[in-house]
Design a protein around this nucleic acid. Structure first.
Lengths: 348, 348
DNA sequence: ATGAAAGCGCTAACAA
DNA sequence: TTGTTAGCGCTTTCAT
């Protein structure tokens, strides 16, 4: 037939394409890269592109990364992908990154500093071009160090107050305020609050907002109705609400700092023979996937996690391309109270 | 002081370590690699290791991968990480891979062949050393192609019957049989089955097992009580059960091919004013996270997803190290029926 | 036990 | 417009 032969076995390289096209590898490189294609004779470029396609040529990301010092990968640090909060964030991130040719490397830290350090090191060995971090604690030496190294970095979900980090968070203030107002509108006056771990920005902000909103809406805040959970977890929520129930101070509603804590509340209520919302109304935070399947369906503050991921990815790409900002901006995404069956008006 | 100075800015390379140690880079390479360390004078090696640590040296995974043609990364193809089934599998995979120095690259395919093809190509560009695939369809040209390319490959969750692929699946036969027996023990005789998409191995196996188990246990299988869902999704389950309810053939229990379909059953029952388990008992499959929080709590066949991921990762590492097996083995993991509140004895 | 040298596949500065 | 050359950081063969 007289055409060139297509090697069936090994992965073709630029050199293979160059040989088949009868040109130098550099020309092939230029022709195949859209950025430099204009430097090449249009017909030659077309021929090269065609040959590359026929051979099934795919650029070697390792070689390109080594040469250009850009890997087109980004590291994503999460507490735990099995927490339903995070998969939508990840999908949002990938939705933005993939079309731009970037690959996300996911790492779980389990909120353990050692593990986080190890994951971070591993990702750096793979020369990721930047980080999206969902594991920020209010005091976070590791993140301060990363920032000093001038690596593109965006925080998501949680932030570090006044840290100057670029971050994407939910409008927790609006969310908690709406939740408190909803309960008060239903006639509740004795409202308990289950706060999250004090080293997380979201926990502190939601707690402070709860106090302020209740006061502003004319409901006295009773310190005995505020319990701290050591983790955003079902077990911690169960334990915290059990402590409140065992206490003397009565209450008709509880606002949980997040949905997992609210799930724990359901457990505690059931074990104590209390009904929801008959005896006690519950509101959660995050509106995580499948939370609407509970009985009674949980009223919760919906956070746009998918959009959060998208925004974080966009901000990271911007940093990768334009360089680090002098001072990071914090993007606050709107939230919405989704009323379901877990809240009821207090009996007259 | 008189020590060597530690460069604070750029990432140190082998060369930096070599200069500080006064030896050749090759010696540093040998000393730092446990496999070749014995070739180096013990004292020299110790000195090099110490200097490398002081400098904060980290091997460049891109350079190493380029040189050795092994990237120490593996690709993981999932339908969708937001399906709660998959995060535990991913964690299981990482639990095995990370200690061995491997990094997992996660890709979502949304069960779309185009997207899967694109993801696959992207992962190949990054020269992953192998694939763990949770997206297998019974007829899957892409996977057959990959296999011909002699790339290490392990299927997880789903398999391809008689395809010769190494795979890790649940013991669906035992699971479905236990579920059917449970319903029959409760006195049910009119049992509906909601099958999954016919192009998935799990769907076919569970359907066939249902038919066989029911017959063997002395319950006639009525074709009118078998509905096919086009997807493993809530919406598909809702639609399928609604069709059955609208039909003439009565039934007292429904076995869903997976939990998402069972979730859809809850929706359909509620919309039709039927109670569970009062009017109709429901059993799911997978026992996915949070499924126990439903009301009534869903009886389901527990599948050890975490262990599934671990096993798949182990088998993949074996392939990467020992080469591809002539014919892949299928590992079947034990399952367990978890009885919760969604099933009740039929009224006499 | 160590050094020298080559080269993995690619891009980019420089030359022609 | 195209070719030449060098080199990213590492491993590995060969030589000493």
């Amino acid at each position: 037939m007289g055409g060139y032969s297509v090697p069936m076995s090994a992965v073709p390289t630029l050199r293979d394409v160059a040989v088949h096209a009868g040109v130098h590898v550099a020309t092939v490189s230029r022709a195949l890269n859209p950025e430099t294609r204009h430097q090449v004779n249009a017909e030659t470029a077309a021929r090269i592109i065609s040959i590359a396609r026929d051979l099934g040529y795919r650029p070697n990301a390792l070689a390109r990364g080594l040469r250009t010092a850009r890997s087109t990968t980004v590291g994503v640090l999460l507490p735990d992908i099995t927490n339903p909060l995070f998969p939508p964030i990840v999908r949002g991130i990938e939705e933005v990154l993939l079309p731009e040719g970037y690959t996300a490397l996911i790492a779980n830290t389990d909120n353990a500093p050692d593990q986080e350090e190890a994951q971070f090191t591993r990702l750096r060995q793979h020369h990721v071009d930047g980080f999206i971090v969902a594991t920020a604690r209010r005091d976070h030496p590791l993140l301060r160090r990363v920032r000093q190294e001038k690596i593109p970095l965006v925080l998501v979900n949680r932030t570090i107050e006044r840290g100057g980090f670029t971050s994407v968070v939910a409008d927790d203030t609006a969310g908690v305020t709406a939740a408190v107002r909803h309960l008060i509108d239903l006639g509740h006056r004795d409202i308990a609050f289950l706060a999250g771990p004090s080293n997380l920005s979201t926990a502190l902000l939601r707690l402070n907002t709860f106090k302020r909103a209740a006061a502003e809406l004319g409901v006295a805040v009773d310190g005995r109705l505020i319990e701290r959970c050591e983790a955003y977890s079902e077990a911690a929520g169960d334990a915290a609400l059990s402590r409140l129930i065992a206490g003397e101070r009565r209450f008709t509603a509880v606002l949980a700092s997040n949905d997992l804590i609210a799930l724990g509340c359901y457990d505690a209520l059931e074990r104590n023979g209390l009904s929801c919302p008959g005896d006690i109304s519950v509101i959660g935070f995050n509106d995580m996937p499948f939370i609407d399947k509970l009985r009674p369906p949980l009223t919760s503050v919906h956070v746009p996690h998918h959009e959060m991921g998208r925004t974080a990815a966009r901000l990271l790409l911007k940093q990768i391309r334009d360089g680090l900002p002098r001072r990071g901006e914090t993007v606050q995404l709107p939230v919405e109270l989704v009323v379901r069956g877990s809240t009821a008006a207090v009996r007259p």
